[in-house]
């Protein structure tokens, strides 16, 4: 092994120099150039798709928030929509705590919206993967329309129109799932 030693030492010297060169290229130049290009080409997206209502930054239209009973509700969140700490609940599929939470949420959602507990869809009683999901299913939006219209003194038709405007189908007709963006929907309500 002694005869290998100088070779091994030399390899370490090469390794250090190579790593430094790659760190400058991939760790400094690359992210700086990409950030410059992204900022120039897609300014809004690159900065978090921030949306304004009445001239003020109110949200990112990709990040969910919590709302009171005059508004459409987002899904339950393991982090209460703290955008600086995304997380899922990590409850297992047979977790008794999760069963309890789901039963409780089902009662609350049914009561708030004046519907039968069996009408409450799965996304209304489960926490998302990020804890920041801005979307709900069209079914969950549908059971909230009457309440929001009543609370805000709007007609059901007006609210339904806004829901429709903030609903997306599957991308290209088959990718992902249909969904309603609660953030943009509530912003539209606020802007009325």
């Amino acid at each position: 092994m002694a005869s290998n030693l100088p070779g091994s030492v030399r390899q370490f010297g090469v390794a250090i120099r190579a790593l430094l060169v790659f760190t400058v290229a991939l760790g400094i130049i690359y992210p700086l150039v990409m950030t410059g290009a992204a900022q120039a080409l897609f300014h809004g997206n690159a900065n978090g798709s921030i949306v304004k209502v009445n001239g003020k930054d109110v949200a990112s239209d990709l990040i969910g928030q919590t709302y009171g009973k005059q508004w459409f509700q987002t899904r339950p969140s393991a982090v209460d929509y703290n955008a600086m700490g995304s997380a899922a609940s990590q409850y297992g599929p047979n977790s008794p705590e999760l069963v309890k939470l789901i039963d409780q949420r089902r009662q609350e959602v049914a009561e708030l919206n004046g519907v039968d507990p069996s009408q409450v869809p799965p996304d209304a009683v489960t926490a998302s993967g990020s804890g920041l999901d801005p979307d709900i299913s069209p079914a969950y939006a549908a059971i909230q329309v009457d309440r929001v219209a009543r609370e805000r003194g709007l007609s059901v038709a007006e609210v339904q129109k806004l829901v429709k405007e903030n609903t997306k189908g599957r991308t290209l007709g088959f990718l992902g799932e249909p969904r309603v963006n609660v953030v943009t929907l509530n912003n539209a309500l606020a802007a009325l």
């Binding site: 990409m34 950030t35 290009a37 992204a38 900022q39 080409l41 897609f42 997206n45 690159a46 900065n47 978090g48 798709s49 921030i50 209502v53 003020k56 930054d57 109110v58 949200a59 990112s60 990709l62 990040i63 928030q65 919590t66 709302y67 009171g68 508004w71 929509y81 703290n82 955008a83 600086m84 509530n186 912003n187 309500l189 606020a190």
Partner: peptide, 28 residues
């Protein structure tokens, strides 16, 4: 660039504060 075009962020911000329509602050 494809990802940014789809909505992925690319900036050096330390967090951007917004105040929601219900008056809650959130750091993006």
């Amino acid at each position: 660039l494809v990802l940014v075009a789809m909505g992925v962020v690319q900036n050096f911000s330390g967090g951007h504060e917004v105040t929601s329509v219900v008056g809650q602050t959130q750091t993006i």
